[in-house]
Amino acid sequence: CFNIYCQGSKFNIGNLVLYRLNKNLGLGRIIRIIEVPTSKSLDAEDTQFFTKYKVFFNNNIIKITFPIDLVHFVFDVNEKVVSKHGTGVINSKDFIIKDGTISYEFLKSDSKVVQIYESEIQSKYETLIETLIKRQKFDPSLNFLLKYWANLFHTYYTSYRVKCITNSRLSLMPHQVNVAHRLAEEYFSRIILADEVGLGKTIEAGIYVKEMMARNLAENL
């Protein structure tokens, strides 16, 4: 048995372990002890058993394995973990062993120190980038570019300046652009367009309406 913390006999439910044959599986937790009979006898006391363990790893991977293939995992001091008490760090290099289960001194995010068992530790703390890399959840390059362009255009059209005039198919006049800027830079603006006939009041209103639609600020037209 590679569990040096259980008096050399066996692992316990809740122990955190690594799989010696594939450590890329990451941290696992023993969730069940399986006693398999190696021989049968009419006398139950003479029946021989060997022990296997059911281990739950990340990404919902479950393995049933022999104890020789497992290594009891021990956290280092200052290592950040997520527990039932929240996120915090292992506060001391010394730990307590009770019935084959490790108990750590745990410093919570609110600076309180508590004693927790390894069965209460849910996982190592990982940043979002580390989680994405581990799960390899990356978009194909085309999807990435589409999302990038969509975000770029959204930012472009929701800024405080008028952007719709840059993609207009009309030849705009200076006074039309000036009116559009005045309208777009004011909240809840109310204005009467009273230019002379032929100076483009419809175009001025159209620029403003298009700008508000691009900013998701136009509910009723």
Score class of each variant (00 low, 15 high):
Ile61Gly: 00
Ile96Trp: 07
Val82His: 01
Tyr117Met: 08
Val71Glu: 14
Gln122Thr: 12
Pro67Gly: 07
Ser103Gly: 05
Glu126Phe: 07
Thr51Glu: 07
Ser123Met: 11
Asn59Asp: 12
Ser109Asp: 15
Lys84Glu: 12
Ile90Gly: 03
Tyr117Gln: 14
Thr101Ile: 15
Asp94Asn: 13
Phe57Arg: 06
Thr87Lys: 07
Ile116Asp: 02
Thr47Tyr: 00
Ile102Lys: 01
Ile96Lys: 11
Ile96Arg: 14
Val82Ala: 03
Leu107Glu: 10
Tyr117Gly: 09
Phe50His: 13
Gly86Pro: 04
Glu120Ala: 13
Val113Lys: 13
Val113Thr: 14
Val74Gln: 06
Tyr104Trp: 06
Asn91Ser: 12
Asn59Gln: 08
Asp76Gln: 09
Tyr117Ser: 15
Ser111Trp: 06
Val77Cys: 08
Asn58Glu: 15
Lys124Pro: 10
Val114Glu: 11
Thr65Gly: 01
Lys108Glu: 09
Gly88Met: 07
Thr47Gln: 14
Glu105Pro: 01
Lys93Tyr: 02
Phe73Gln: 02
Phe49Ile: 04
Asn60His: 09
Gln48Ile: 13
Leu107Phe: 10
Phe66Pro: 00
Lys108Val: 01
Lys112Ser: 15
Phe95Arg: 05
Pro67Gln: 09
Lys124Val: 13
Glu105Met: 11
Tyr125Trp: 15
Gly88Tyr: 07
Ser123Glu: 14
Lys112Cys: 08
Ser103Met: 13
Ser92Tyr: 03
Phe106Pro: 05
Thr101Gly: 00
Phe56Trp: 04
Val81Phe: 01
Ser92Pro: 00
Glu126Met: 14
Ile61Met: 06
Lys112Asn: 11
Glu79Ser: 08
Glu118Leu: 02
Tyr53Met: 01
Asn91Gly: 09
Val74Met: 02
Ser111Phe: 10
Glu79Phe: 03
Lys112His: 11
Ile64Phe: 00
Asp94Met: 07
Thr47Pro: 01
Leu107Val: 01
Lys98Asn: 08
Asn91Trp: 08
Glu120Met: 10
Val89His: 10
Glu118Ser: 04
Lys63Met: 11
Val71His: 06
Phe57Ala: 05
Phe73His: 14
Ile61Thr: 12
Asn60Pro: 00
Ser92Lys: 05
Ser111Tyr: 05
Glu79Thr: 09
Ile61Ala: 02
Ile116Gln: 07
Ser123Pro: 06
Asp94Trp: 04
Phe57Asp: 11
Asp110Ala: 06
Glu120Gln: 15
Asn58Trp: 02
Phe50Asp: 05
Leu107Arg: 11
Gly86Gln: 04
Tyr125Gln: 06
His72Pro: 00
Glu79Lys: 13
Ser119Tyr: 14
Tyr104Asp: 03
